[in-house]
Structures are given as structure tokens and as C-alpha cells.
Design a protein around this nucleic acid. Structure first.
Length: 263
DNA sequence: ATGGTCGTTTGACGA
């Protein structure tokens, strides 16, 4: 079972690239973030034509939006944290069960700056995701929590850690919240197979950062123990970050994990 | 170089 997470930075702007990439890589489950679509505008027919069922949690106003697409079945969709948890005003979390795996597509708030209310929202959001995990899944079962976490798990995941001191994405409190999430019983599947620094999933559009190798690894596939045990291959397709004017890439590359699971 | 770019509700804002 091939599982992918990809922040597409507008599915409307990226649809032809997404279709082309799916044709080349043939994923079974694909989690999308930043569709920037409202609930009625998701191109479900385009995904259906490629063999996928889809569940999209959209938002008015051209921001956020997350989806789970699957060609190995899709059941029990849930938008957001679920009942009993302070709801999120944004569309940043979608759940579905695909091929026997409980899958989450997450778009963690950016945080903006350490003194910003959005940063406190980011910390609270990660805490609520941890609670939602308890309600949506069991760490002994097959669970894949995928998405744009907007946190670089450790200093290997940033091109220059010194440059991020006092900024979001590397601060202690958000890394602690991410570690708490892993403590629920999840492993960072790409990192388990690739321990070396300098492997990134996001590069700022500005300043030619991609070509200068100035990126961060903030897009993660987290797997419960049975999923981690089944992981046999992981890839960040940095080629997908390339492209000319007129066919521009997302600022994030897709992250792919192959699981040796029946589906 | 103290910025440089994208995408969106077309324009100020989020990333």
C-alpha cells in the first residue's frame, strides 16, 4: 500500500500536476493539504476518473482545506477533531479509513511568530490532535497520521538551525507537542529509513531557496507500530518541486511511503 | 542585498 502526503498549495492551481504525478507514482492513498477550496469545489470527478474515492474538508475563503483520497476503499470519514474536543474554526484535519488503515490528513497551523496568537493556536491544535488520536484510533491498530506539520522535528530537518532561533517551526514548545504525538505510538517513517540531515520537503518560493538547498522537512508520514513494521520504502519526490513559469510547483514536495500491508 | 515569490476573495495578507 503506497501512502502519500502532499501540501499542494491550491488544488485548483495544481490539479494538472497532481493528476500527472498520480499517474506516475500510482499511490493507493493520497492525503492533500491546502486545497484552498470550499467544500463544494473539490474536483471529486477528476479523482474518480483516476480510480479514487475522496473525502474533502473544505473552507470558504480560499484557505486551508484537507482531503483523503483512496483507491483501496474509504469509510468512516470525520472532519476535524471529532466530538468532545474544542472544535477548530479552520478546515485542517480529515480522517478516513482506507484499506484497513485509519488515515489522517493534517494541516497544522503555521504559527507565524512566537509572540503571535496563531502560535498559541498552533500549540493548542497539536494538543487537540493528540486527544483526537485517542478517540479516532488505537496505537496497536494500523494508523497513518500524514500531513504538513509546520514543525521541523529536529535540527537535521532545517538547512540552518541557527537561522531559526526565535522563530516558528523549530521552537521547543512545538517540537515538544510533536514529540507528544509520537509518544502516543507513532514513528516518523521517512526519518526511520533516512537518518541523514538535509533532506527537505518544503522550500520557500522566494530567493531561489530550492536551488540553494535552503529547505525544511515539515511534511511527515507518522505510522503506528504495525504500520511502521510494514514500511519498506520512503521517498520525498523533490523533482516535483521543480517547474517552469506556467507550470509552477507547490512549495512542498510529495512524501511517499510504501507499506507491505494487504489492501 | 536589509529582498528576492506564490496563491487567493485583486489586493492585502498568509505562507
Amino acid at each position: 500500500m503506497r501512502v502519500v502526503t502532499w501540501n499542494v498549495n491550491s488544488l485548483k492551481a495544481r490539479l494538472s500536476r497532481v493528476e500527472r504525478w498520480i499517474g506516475a507514482f500510482d499511490p493507493d492513498v493520497i492525503c492533500l493539504q491546502e486545497t484552498k477550496l470550499d467544500s463544494g469545489s473539490f474536483p471529486a470527478l477528476a479523482f474518480e476518473a483516476l480510480g479514487y474515492e475522496s473525502f474533502h474538508h473544505g473552507q470558504e475563503g480560499g484557505r486551508n482545506g484537507v482531503a483523503v483520497c483512496s483507491r483501496v476503499g474509504l469509510s468512516d470519514p470525520v472532519a476535524g477533531f471529532g466530538p468532545g474536543i474544542e472544535p477548530d474554526g479552520d478546515a485542517r484535519l480529515a480522517w478516513a479509513t482506507c484499506g484497513g488503515v485509519r488515515v489522517a490528513s493534517c494541516y497544522v497551523p503555521n504559527g507565524r511568530s512566537l509572540d503571535n496568537d496563531h502560535y498559541r493556536y498552533k500549540l493548542s491544535w497539536l494538543e487537540r490532535l493528540r486527544v483526537a488520536l485517542d478517540r479516532q484510533a488505537d496505537p496497536g491498530a494500523a494508523v497513518a497520521v500524514c500531513g504538513d506539520f509546520n514543525v521541523a522535528p529536529d535540527d537535521r530537518d532545517v538547512y540552518d538551525p541557527a537561522r531559526f532561533e526565535g522563530a516558528t517551526h523549530t521552537s521547543g514548545p512545538e517540537r515538544d507537542r510533536l514529540a507528544d504525538l509520537l509518544g502516543w505510538g507513532l514513528a516518523d517513517l521517512f526519518r526511520e529509513r533516512h537518518p541523514e540531515p538535509g533532506l527537505f520537503s518544503w522550500w520557500d518560493y522566494r530567493s531561489g531557496d530550492f536551488h540553494k538547498k535552503k529547505g525544511m522537512r515539515i511534511d511527515l508520514v507518522l505510522g503506528s507500530a504495525p504500520v511502521a513494521a510494514a514500511a519498506e520504502y520512503a521517498l520525498i519526490d523533490r523533482n516535483e518541486r521543480k517547474g517552469p513559469k506556467g507550470d509552477l510547483p507547490s512549495d512542498h514536495a510529495p512524501v511517499l511511503v510504501d507499506l507491505n500491508l494487504p489492501c
